[in-house]
Write a protein that binds this DNA or RNA. Structure first.
Length: 572
DNA sequence: GCCGTTTTCGGCCCGACTGTTTTCAGTCG
């Protein structure tokens, strides 16, 4: 059983307990354990199989949860969960997903009106039976109906790149306003999560009404959800929710820290403050009533003798342990990247020529790029035969001879065939500077079959990196099944790289998987899989992912010069 | 349900906003 599945069960128990009105701290314990298991760098089943390891050594897992997890993994079932489900039908959990409806109100609806499903709920609201209930009113009924409609129309969380476009537009809207002294985006957008639920804007201003009025004038605002003295919430046409908070200068850093989160990171931080007799809230850090600091995030962290963590790692995973040990990694930055090693041109399915791609890369300050058009098997992408490929490589040689100020590498994205083996003969691959290979066909084979194909490619002497090692698309269909631990082990042994391709919809490796690669000693190469010049900007998305995984410049291969990179892949 | 170098019991982050209320509970982040 995978960690993800175990985490799912723990989360479901938390939902059910919450619905039953259980002790909120007990609910939190289950939720916290679910998160810890999900983020754990190694498989729970491996720990259970090891005689000298204990689940209770994991932070957040005590005797009770260790026993439940052992039962779950051992038998595939959990009696406790079955008991809960016997009391509360699973369908009522859908009620908790409606904005404005929490566990208390949902439980009343279930008990008093027998509401078990979303359809029941809609009927109850429309027949006005809901407003009869104690603690409910006509307005509540409206809010529930609106929340149901929103749940239907609003898509899942927005992809980071799409949220980024909205965020930049919002910042531009506020730019001309004189009342704004400082402005920043916070929340999961700032932490660089793959998907963003809503946007949080923070403004430093003495004129709160002016800022709020200006916000309301934004054309993209569809509905005003709430407006108070310091906080305003709206929903945009795109379905994205935006929260605006206005704070004075002395609280700006405290508020930025607070609203950047994550929630779990803040819980740890506040606990540490409490141990020292301090209190942190969004207005600052206090001893009793006395304000100590809050103008900048650095001040807040410094008051607890902590470094100002990069937003990307504020997830209550490793960051506090790193800080305590003085081993906070210096995270990789966009400026560290010297080359983009995954790129397509008009020769296969790209939209720009190699000359255009090279010019765009040079403008971005890159020192080298690899043109990695598809190989012949990828017929749908106009993949190249050995003959066409050799012709393209000759063109690249000629281009480099013109001294263009950037080195273009002769590369290829070679398909890993369904039956195993590579799509191009060895003598052709031997002529390439840079060979990446990937699975495009036979993605619904078994986990063992796909893993075997990838492992064979890793062992191939001319292969430098595996692209799309998991087939992972964000918010879309499932990735293909692959034994990633086996892939990491083989890649480390043969000094091969794994590619983290970054597009708005694709991040081949999650941050957790990147961190696991690092533990295995596997280097990551970040690529953009660019099919047009504009796509080169996607490198920023890949960098954020690498940072969330705690990767440094040394963990990322294309921060090196081409000469250093050749040594790394054994070409020199 | 977890946790502990003042604790094995009694804590567990903290505040804003709304609706239904007459002082607060529920929800959200």
């Amino acid at each position: 059983m995978t960690n993800a599945r175990i985490a799912e069960v723990l989360d479901q128990i938390a939902d059910l307990l919450e619905f039953e009105g259980a002790n909120p701290f007990r609910v939190r314990a289950y939720r916290n354990a679910g998160r810890v298991v999900h983020d754990l760098p190694e498989a729970i089943s491996d720990i259970l199989a090891s005689p000298d390891r204990k689940l209770t050594d994991i932070d957040g897992i005590g005797a009770d949860l260790a026993e439940k997890i052992t039962t779950l993994v051992g038998t595939g079932k959990l009696p406790f969960l079955e008991e809960l489900l016997a009391r509360t039908p699973e369908s009522v959990l859908a009620l908790l997903r409606i904005a404005g409806l929490g566990p208390k109100k949902a439980a009343v609806l279930y008990k008093e009106l027998g509401v078990k499903t979303l359809a029941d709920l809609k009927a109850a609201c429309e027949s006005h039976r809901v407003q009869e209930l104690k603690g409910f009113g006509a307005k509540t009924e409206q809010i529930i109906l609106a929340g149901m409609e929103l749940a239907q129309t609003a898509a899942d969380r927005m992809l980071w790149a799409d949220a980024d476009a909205e965020a930049q537009a919002l910042l531009a809207h506020f730019k001309p306003l004189k009342a704004v002294k400082q402005i920043a985006m916070a929340g999961s957008y700032r932490r660089g999560r793959e998907t963003v639920g809503d946007l949080d804007i923070l403004v430093d201003s003495d004129d709160m009404p002016a800022v709020m009025d200006h916000f309301a004038k934004l054309p993209a605002v569809k509905t005003l959800v709430a407006r108070g003295d310091t906080k305003m919430s709206v929903r945009l046409d795109s379905g994205l929710g935006v929260d605006l908070r206005v704070v004075p200068a002395k609280s700006f850093g405290a508020a930025l820290q607070y609203f950047t989160g994550s929630k779990d990171h803040n819980v740890v931080l506040r606990g540490m403050a409490k141990d020292r007799g301090l209190k942190i809230n969004e207005y600052g850090i206090f001893r009793g009533e006395k304000y100590l600091a809050g103008k900048t995030e650095e001040e807040i962290y410094a008051a607890l003798d902590l470094p100002c963590f990069a937003p990307e790692i504020r997830e209550a995973r490793q960051e506090f342990a790193w800080a305590a040990a003085g081993e906070l990694p210096k995270l990789v930055e966009l400026a560290d990247i010297r080359g983009d090693l995954h790129m397509h041109t008009t020769e296969s399915d790209g939209n720009n020529t190699l000359e255009e791609m090279a010019a765009a890369a040079k403008t971005r300050g890159l020192k080298y790029i690899a043109i990695t058009d598809h190989s012949q098997r990828a017929t749908i992408a106009n993949g190249l035969t050995p003959e066409r490929l050799k012709k393209l490589w000759k063109r690249i040689d000629k281009f480099n001879a013109t001294d263009p100020g950037i080195l273009v590498l002769k590369g290829v994205e070679c398909d890993i065939l369904e039956k195993g083996g590579l799509d191009l003969p060895d003598d052709v691959l031997a002529e390439a500077d840079w060979v990446i290979c990937s699975v495009h066909y036979g993605q619904n084979q078994t986990r063992a079959q796909i893993t075997a194909r990838i492992l064979e490619a890793i062992e191939h002497p001319h292969v430098a990196a595996i692209a799309h090692p998991t087939g992972r698309l964000i918010n879309r269909r499932k990735p293909y099944e692959v034994d990633l631990e086996a892939v990491f082990t083989a890649a480390a042994k043969h000094h091969k790289l794994l590619e983290l391709n970054a597009t708005p919809q694709r991040l081949d490796l999650s941050d957790i998987q990147c961190a696991a690669a690092k533990r295995h000693g596997v280097k990551i190469v970040i690529g953009t899989d660019s099919h047009r010049v504009e796509s080169l900007a996607q490198m920023r998305v890949g960098i954020i992912q690498a940072r969330r995984a705690g990767l440094t410049k040394e963990d990322v291969a294309n921060t090196r010069t081409w000469g250093q990179l050749q040594k790394l892949i054994g070409k020199k």
